[in-house]
Amino acid sequence: MNNAISLTDLRKSFGQMEIIRGVHLDIKKGERHAIIGPNGAGKSTLFHLISGHYQPSSGSVILNDEEIGGVMPYDIYRKGLARSFQVTNIFPNLTVYENVRCGALWACGHGYSFWQQVENLEDVNLKTEEILEKINLTHRHNVPASLLAYAEQRALEIGITLAGGADVIMLDEPTAGMSIGETEQAVELIRSVTEGKTLVIVEHDMGVVFDLADRISVLVYGEIIATDTPAAIRTNKLVQEAYLGTEVTADA
């Protein structure tokens, strides 16, 4: 199979409310796949279901030919899926350097080791420095993460996600709240660091979506109403209706 992620009739209810109502979706290996949809459509819930934050009510989630529905988040991460969060989710009292280093520890195979010193783990430290360089935070490496500016925290959020070198990267609104300049930088960053990987991204900024994605899925009221190339999505009648008549354009 050449699907990185495959969802079959995935459902999630909270009490009486069914938020995800039978999602079918195949995300190919190596593609950049965007999920868009109006507010409250269930995009973040879908992310939580794939990454193990929530357990599916029914249906299946397959990551690289392996069922991961109901698997704990850390086990899913160990199978090669890393995600970021919509609301910045970092380690506030640790320095920027340590934040990224924590992200690299497991992937470098150090697990729960208590007999080594992090300073001596050359592989982890080199990886950390490589990521810091990429996310442009090298000069801030010694600052506690809580003192970073908002855009820097967003970059750090992505850095922690990337540090483990997972094959499947899921980013939940990585550019939310950024200025135009910061967004451009973030898109370039995402493009470069996901080279040769599978990217799943939730994003409100249509400019970012149409710029970055190979394929787009539109999620409305817990169902995928269309999955196609950006050009085809743009002209899709159903999608246009879902956005209440507003046209889905690159500058929306």
């Binding site: 850390y74 991460y77 520890l105 497991w106 996600t161």
Partner: peptide
């Protein structure tokens, strides 16, 4: 967050 970087 620790869960999503591989740690229980």
């Amino acid at each position: 967050r620790a869960q999503f970087i591989g740690y229980n």
